[in-house]
Design a binder for these strands. Structure first.
Length: 234
DNA sequence: AAATCTGCCAACCGCGATCAG
DNA sequence: CCTGATCGCGGTTGGCAGATT
C-alpha cells in the first residue's frame, strides 16, 4: 500500500480522531492500519500529539511560558519533551520551534553560539531576571492578588566579581537593571572563577526565581502575550 | 508591482531505547 | 538472550505568508 506524505487532510484528521476516541492512543503502527490510514504509525502519533489531541494549547507563547522555557532549558538543555511536560498543552515541537526561531536568533545577533557559556550566562543572569521583573510589573499593574506570593529578583554586583541575586520586596520593587550596567556586570563575571556560579546555586536553593516554577497559579494568569525579546532589547 | 528575504510551523528523518516474540 | 518491530526524541527540512527591498 502506498503511504501518504505531506500535510494531513480534514478527512484523515477525522478518521484518526474518531479511531482514537473509540480505541485510545498507542500501538501506532497497528492503529494506522486498523483505522485505514495510509500513513506511518509515526506520522499518526505526531499528528495526534502535536495537533489533534484535545488539550493542545494554541496561540502565542506567553511571558510566563517564555520564562519557564528559559529556566528549564538552562537546566536541562535541549530536552524538549521534558521541558514540554512543564508547559501544559504545549508540545515539544512547539517549544523546540520557539527556541530555534526566537532564542537562537538572538544568540546569532550577539555573535555567539547558542550553547556557549557566554550566551547561557546572558540568559540566566540578565534576561531571565529581567523577564521575571517584567512579569511582576505587569501583575502589579493589573492589581493581581496572586502577585503577593511571587517575588521579583534583583541583580547586584557585589564587588567580588560575582553577581548577587536577591529577592525584592514589594515596597522597593522598582528594580533598576539598565542594559548598560547589567552588561558591564556580566562581563566582569565572565572573567571570574567559579565563585559566582556557586553563589547562584546557593541562592537557587533558597529564595530565587526557581520559586516561580512551583507556583500553581503560574498558568492562571496567562493574560499577556507580549514577546520578551522585544521587551528586553529596549 | 515584482522579487527576495525572513519567520513560523507542520512534518519528516535518523537514531537510540524499548518492547515483544 | 537475540532479533526485528515499534516507539519516542531531537534535529532538520520544506512550504507558506507576511515583510522588506
Amino acid at each position: 500500500m502506498e503511504l501518504r506524505r505531506g500535510p494531513w487532510s480534514v478527512e484523515e484528521d477525522f478518521v484518526l480522531m474518531n479511531y482514537i476516541s473509540h480505541h485510545g492512543e498507542g500501538r501506532w503502527n497497528s492503529l494506522s492500519r486498523c483505522a485505514g490510514l495510509k500513513r506511518t504509525g509515526k506520522s499518526c502519533r505526531l499528528r495526534w500529539l502535536n495537533y489533534l489531541r484535545p488539550d493542545v494549547r494554541r496561540g502565542n507563547i506567553t511571558l510566563e511560558e517564555q520564562l519557564l522555557i528559559l529556566q528549564l532549558h538552562s537546566r536541562w538543555g535541549n530536552r524538549w519533551s521534558k521541558i514540554a511536560q512543564h508547559l501544559p498543552g504545549r508540545t515539544d515541537n512547539e517549544i523546540k520551534n520557539y527556541w530555534r526561531t526566537r532564542v537562537q536568533k538572538h544568540a546569532k545577533q550577539l555573535k555567539c553560539d547558542v550553547n556557549s557559556k557566554q550566551f547561557q550566562d546572558t540568559l540566566r543572569y540578565l534576561w531571565i531576571p529581567r523577564l521575571v521583573e517584567r512579569i511582576q510589573a505587569s501583575k502589579i499593574s493589573n492589581n493581581n492578588s496572586s502577585s503577593e506570593t511571587q517575588q521579583p529578583v534583583q541583580l547586584m554586583n557585589n564587588n567580588n566579581n560575582s553577581i548577587l541575586i536577591t529577592s525584592v520586596t514589594p515596597e522597593n520593587s522598582s528594580v533598576a537593571t539598565s542594559s548598560e550596567n547589567s552588561n558591564q556586570d556580566y562581563y566582569q563575571v565572565n572573567q571570574s572563577d567559579q565563585l559566582w556560579f556557586e553563589d547562584y546555586q546557593a541562592m537557587d536553593q533558597q529564595n530565587n526565581i526557581e520559586l516561580w516554577m512551583d507556583n500553581e497559579d503560574i498558568f492562571n494568569n496567562l493574560c499577556n502575550n507580549e514577546d520578551i525579546w522585544s521587551l528586553l532589547e529596549h
